[in-house]
Simulated assay, not measured.
Amino acid sequence: MSELRLEELGAKTIVAVNNLSLKPGQQQFLAPVSYDLATTVINPQTAWQRVVLDGDRVVGFVSANFDPDATEPHFQSVLWRINVDAEAQRGGIGRFAVDELRRVAAERGFDHVDVIYEAGEDGPERFFTAVGFTPVGETEYSEVIATIKV
């Protein structure tokens, strides 16, 4: 693995992000990437979207939002999506992305990052727990709300 780095989502990486593969069973826990891409258009001042590159290869995508004025506290500093290509999973890429997200959150004055996810056997809970998120509640739709300190 080369040195990992983040790059702002752009024209030269968007196709690769849309083509990231998932392991069987993971797709039921993720909305299409295009849903996240629309958030930049809707919330350009607060949306934060980056691709994770290993050398020149796109191996991941992370989408977050930083909005101190959000009415729901768990939407003020929130990780919306993290995708790591199926072939690159379990190689430290997700942990790298979360660490970078925490760094950015701290730079923007936040003391934590929240994530909301659907519980399930093939879902992301094991990953989020492994990188340090702690469940703190649930949404009205029974999704887990978890938080990590920055």
Rank of each mutant, 00 (worst) to 15 (best):
A47G: 03
E87W: 07
P32K: 14
P135S: 00
V115A: 15
D36H: 10
V98D: 04
E107C: 11
E87A: 15
A38L: 14
Q45A: 15
A119L: 13
A31T: 08
R108S: 07
A105W: 04
D56C: 09
A11I: 12
I145P: 01
L22G: 04
V136W: 08
V144C: 12
R90V: 05
N65E: 09
L22A: 10
D36P: 00
G91K: 14
R57N: 03
F127G: 04
W80Q: 07
Q27R: 13
S34R: 09
P32D: 09
T139E: 04
L53V: 01
D85R: 04
T40S: 02
G123Q: 01
Q89Y: 00
G120E: 02
G10L: 05
D67F: 07
E121A: 15
E3P: 01
E140V: 15
A47M: 11
V150Y: 03
V136G: 03
A106V: 13
E118S: 12
D69Y: 08
L20C: 06
L4E: 02
I116H: 08
D69E: 13
D54Q: 11
A38P: 00
V150D: 04
V78Q: 09
A88Q: 05
A130W: 10
D111M: 10
R90A: 09
T71Q: 10
D122R: 12
P32N: 10
I82E: 02
L4P: 01
T71D: 06
V33S: 04
S21P: 01
E138S: 15
Y141I: 11
T147L: 12
D111E: 14
R57Q: 07
G10H: 05
D54K: 07
D122H: 12
L9A: 07
E143I: 00
N65D: 05
A97V: 00
Y141L: 15
V59K: 01
F66R: 03
V59E: 00
I82A: 07
P124R: 01
V41P: 03
T46M: 10
V59S: 03
P24M: 08
F110Q: 03
Q49F: 15
I42Q: 08
A105F: 06
V58E: 00
T129M: 14
R126I: 13
D114V: 11
P73V: 13
H74G: 06
G132R: 11
T46F: 14
L53R: 05
T71R: 11
V150G: 15
L22T: 05
L22W: 07
V136R: 09
E125I: 14
A11P: 08
L37Y: 00
A106I: 10
K23M: 11
T147M: 15
L4I: 04
L9R: 03
Q76P: 01
A119P: 06
N19Q: 11
T40P: 02
L30K: 02
